[in-house]
Simulated scan of single mutants.
Amino acid sequence: MSEAERLHRHLIGQQGSRGSLNTPALVLDLDMLDRNIAEMATFARAHNVKLRPHAKTHKSADIARRQIAAGALGVCCAKLGEAEALAEGGIEALHITSPVVTPQAIDRLMALNAKAADLMVVVDHPANAEALATAAVEAGKPLAVVVDIDPGIHRTGVATPEDAVSLAGKVAGLKGLKYAGVQFYCGSHQHIKDFAERKASIEERTEYLKGILAKLDAAGLKPAIVTGSGTGTHFIDAKLGVFTELQVGSYVFMDHDYEVCDLRGLDKPTFEQALQIDARVVSANTPGMVTVDAGLKAMATEKGPPPILRGAVEGSTTRFMGDEHLAVIAPAGKAAPALAEQVVLTPPHCDPTVNMYESYHVVKGDTLVDIWPVTARGRSR
């Protein structure tokens, strides 16, 4: 039994039970989550593009099932360990978006391929393709492979159009591998705040991708799957019509880093902030400032301190006060929250914040309705 279940299982279904949670607690608003999932699914259908949402955001078999039920092909995983955990949770359509290279990891990949009904993995190096092919032949089941193309951030992916054609040809010719398509993920573009600037940047990168796709087609290697995109560029990418599927992730939660981006050029939020952190005031001795119990260990911090969703007067700000604590500072002349009062925070960056928690406290309104495990928490190997 998880700590969350031990402390809070008895609260499920009790009206207003969110107010009795031990804090800090990772809270998921179920109605907001479902509306976010439905909105993206409707958008994809309207634009004749498939969804393969990225599970690195939520690491949850429960959420993956809801996405698939709404029409998603399956989910993406950043790491092999995430894919293994979700497969253990019953998710069988999985795409691993980072290369799996070492012998020990390839052994695990073959075991996963034997169990999963629909598994894909990227490659960006001919030696890796050869190693995967050898292992797949020995294992007795072909492995679907996607060629990863570097969009210019130099993280993973082949570096040139010529390398893309060469590697695709190699994959297609190797016994044990099935050439499934290409991946092109512009990660550095997702958080460009201004819509017009983001659109111009993605259009330039899409022209680069289209040139590679033309070369692949000319070589008889036209990809059946062109996968990529993300929450920040999904609207632009769908309109450009090059991707066959979108690897959107954070739309289910909407952290602060995405909330400040104009996702569809409408100058208003498209999705709702379903993921929240409940905290409580534990010290209130300084006029205009209190301390809550959610500090550096309660959320990812590289995007700065968290905004306040509710529980403090408008204009209040936050400042980290150490591992366990956060200051909530009221505007001049205004009162700060009182001792033991609830303050609800927006995670600055959802993916690594989720990885800090074992469970989601799923709520409807202010009532706890379920506790879901973070299925792939810590599964980064």
Rank of each mutant, 00 (worst) to 15 (best):
residue 262 D to V: 08
residue 286 T to H: 02
residue 281 V to D: 02
residue 305 P to F: 04
residue 308 I to D: 02
residue 219 A to M: 12
residue 252 V to K: 01
residue 303 K to D: 03
residue 236 I to S: 06
residue 209 L to V: 09
residue 277 I to Y: 12
residue 207 E to K: 09
residue 221 L to K: 04
residue 290 V to W: 05
residue 225 I to H: 10
residue 209 L to W: 02
residue 267 D to I: 04
residue 213 L to V: 07
residue 281 V to F: 12
residue 306 P to S: 11
residue 312 A to L: 10
residue 218 A to G: 03
residue 234 H to K: 05
residue 221 L to W: 11
residue 245 E to G: 01
residue 222 K to G: 00
residue 306 P to W: 08
residue 302 E to A: 06
residue 224 A to H: 11
residue 279 A to K: 11
residue 230 G to T: 09
residue 301 T to A: 13
residue 238 A to T: 06
residue 250 S to Q: 06
residue 263 L to C: 12
residue 235 F to I: 02
residue 219 A to H: 11
residue 300 A to E: 15
residue 274 A to F: 09
residue 261 C to T: 14
residue 253 F to D: 04
residue 240 L to Y: 01
residue 225 I to G: 01
residue 314 E to W: 10
residue 238 A to R: 01
residue 214 A to Y: 01
residue 256 H to Q: 15
residue 276 Q to V: 01
residue 208 Y to A: 13
residue 290 V to Y: 05
residue 239 K to C: 00
residue 245 E to H: 03
residue 260 V to P: 05
residue 266 L to F: 04
residue 216 L to C: 02
residue 227 T to E: 14
residue 247 Q to K: 10
residue 222 K to T: 12
residue 255 D to L: 05
residue 246 L to E: 09
residue 222 K to S: 12
residue 262 D to C: 12
residue 301 T to N: 12
residue 280 R to T: 03
residue 209 L to P: 08
residue 313 V to I: 15
residue 291 T to P: 00
residue 229 S to I: 05
residue 305 P to K: 00
residue 248 V to F: 08
residue 274 A to C: 07
residue 279 A to R: 08
residue 251 Y to D: 02
residue 213 L to T: 04
residue 220 G to P: 07
residue 306 P to G: 06
residue 232 G to E: 03
residue 286 T to L: 13
residue 256 H to D: 15
residue 249 G to F: 13
residue 313 V to Y: 10
residue 262 D to H: 10
residue 205 R to V: 10
residue 226 V to L: 06
residue 204 E to F: 07
residue 230 G to Y: 13
residue 255 D to C: 13
residue 217 D to H: 14
residue 243 F to G: 11
residue 305 P to V: 00
residue 208 Y to W: 12
residue 223 P to V: 07
residue 201 S to Y: 10
residue 265 G to A: 11
residue 227 T to D: 11
residue 228 G to L: 12
residue 249 G to A: 09
residue 249 G to R: 06
residue 260 V to G: 03
